[in-house]
């Protein structure tokens, strides 16, 4: 008998430090409730998290690595988007 595969979920965890949820890994589970339970057992055995999100892996749309240059390269030349591009007179002090 060939068994049906159990769906894959991506796990995101908000750590204690109050930062945004961050990708931790993935788990297999038949439904969302079990995915949460499994994520808790697999990824938070030492108080790593205060909140967990689970998302079915197949619903994630990712950018294509081949488009990396066209997507991200244009920002490299826009140095005027950074504070260090602007001069503030020294007498004014820290700004």
């Amino acid at each position: 008998m060939t068994e049906k595969n159990i769906p894959l979920w991506e796990v995101f965890i908000r750590s204690r430090t109050g930062l945004a949820h961050r990708h931790a890994g993935s788990v297999h589970a038949a439904d969302a409730e079990m995915a949460l339970q499994n994520a808790r057992d697999v990824y938070t055995r030492r108080g790593e998290g205060l909140s967990i999100w689970v998302v079915p892996s197949h619903v994630i749309t990712a950018s294509d690595p081949a488009d990396r240059d066209s997507l991200f390269e244009p920002t490299a030349s826009k140095i005027y988007r950074h504070p260090s591009f602007y001069d503030v007179p020294e007498e004014v002090g820290h700004m």
């Binding site: 595969n5 894959l8 890994g25 993935s26 788990v27 697999v42 055995r45």
Partner: peptide, 21 residues
Amino acid sequence: DEGGHGLYLYSAAETLGVSRE
């Protein structure tokens, strides 16, 4: 923990296009 290590690793392998099954 060892069981957990196995699961982290299976999920790393799955990113290469094989299934855990």
